[in-house]
């Protein structure tokens, strides 16, 4: 029961924080939590399963748009809309993943990059359904059983989503499935020789993490109460990759460190360099790959070893 107690304590502390923050800071905090959630999923896909995909953020967008469209245009009740939205993402992910597993290395990245860009084209041209370039706005989270979750309570929902994603991925990572993913990443031939079905392992990892991104996107849809194409563009797909690499790919602590650092860095840097924090991200990315491939978390390990 010790691990369970630890999860409960984390949930309590992170939730309590929401009630201590102003409404502006709650907004920042929610987005931080969502970035961490996304980075955890992307870490499993890229860091553990070794797939370079740029579609993760597009699935976040598909989740966000689908919940809004299904709830407010198709008129589905929220729980049904969530299930239908996830099913849609799973279907899209399978359609991409099954043929893509034949692609190695960076070719998967470019196929998913095209998918991500195509998604933006569809959003811009979707007419009344997607709201075009302006996106969709003026909707509110519907009440569930007469209760409307608002303010810090909605932050608690996102805390639970983040911790749930983390627990789920941590358990998978420590199981035969996580080892199979790492084996496929390190040497597909050797993995196959040990009985790992390489194609199936890749498809499951891609579909699962894409579905998790979609669920995070559904939560995001009610953070700003608006969804529009620029949010889900390539910039953020790159940022997600940078977060995981700079933080330390393959470890949850790395993904969390990277997401927190890169999300908060612009707040610190903007008085100094305005909107040019992306330049710093680029330099950090190159520096991380060249000097510390294990990222911030590897740096922390090295410092701790030196101190000991």
């Amino acid at each position: 029961m010790k691990p369970l107690a630890r999860w409960l304590a984390a949930a309590l502390v992170l939730s309590a924080l929401a009630f201590a923050l102003s409404s502006y800071h709650n907004d920042v905090y929610r987005k931080l939590l969502l970035w961490v959630t996304l980075a955890l999923g992307y870490n499993f896909l890229f860091g553990v399963a070794g797939q370079v995909a740029f579609s993760h953020f597009a699935f976040y967008g598909i989740g966000a748009y689908s919940i809004v469209i299904l709830t407010f245009q198709a008129g589905l009740p929220l729980p049904l809309a969530i299930v239908a939205g996830v099913a849609l993402c799973v279907a899209v992910a399978l359609a991409v993943a099954i043929p893509s597993t034949r692609l190695e290395g960076f070719y998967l990245a470019l196929a998913t990059l095209a998918l991500a860009q195509l998604f933006i084209v569809v959003l811009n041209e979707g007419g009344a359904v997607t709201g075009g370039a302006g996106g969709l706005a003026d909707y509110r989270l519907p009440a569930i059983l007469g209760v409307r979750v608002t303010g810090p309570w909605y932050t608690v929902v996102i805390v639970l989503l983040m911790l749930g994603t983390m627990a789920l991925l941590a358990r998978l990572d420590r199981s035969w499935f996580g080892r199979a993913c790492r084996a496929v990443r390190d040497s597909p031939e050797a993995a196959a020789a040990m009985g790992v079905n390489v194609a199936r392992t890749k498809v499951i990892a891609f579909t699962l993490t894409s579905a998790l991104a979609a669920v995070a996107g559904m939560a995001y849809a009610f953070v700003d109460n608006t969804v529009n194409p620029p949010i889900f563009g390539l910039e953020n797909a790159f940022l997600l990759l940078f977060m995981v690499i700079i933080g330390g790919a393959g470890r949850q602590a790395g993904a969390i460190a990277g997401a927190v650092a890169l999300y908060l860095l612009p707040f610190v840097l903007s008085p100094l360099i305005g909107h040019h924090h992306a330049l710093v991200f680029g330099v950090l990315m190159v520096a991380a790959i060249l000097l510390q491939p294990r990222g911030l978390i590897g740096l922390y390990d090295a410092l701790r070893r030196r101190a000991a």
Binding site: F242, A278, L279
Partner: peptide, 15 residues
């Protein structure tokens, strides 16, 4: 690794 480092360079050039 170099492919990803060059993605970082891409951002450096652009920014």
């Amino acid at each position: 690794a170099p492919i990803l480092a060059l993605l970082g360079m891409l951002v450096v050039f652009r920014e």
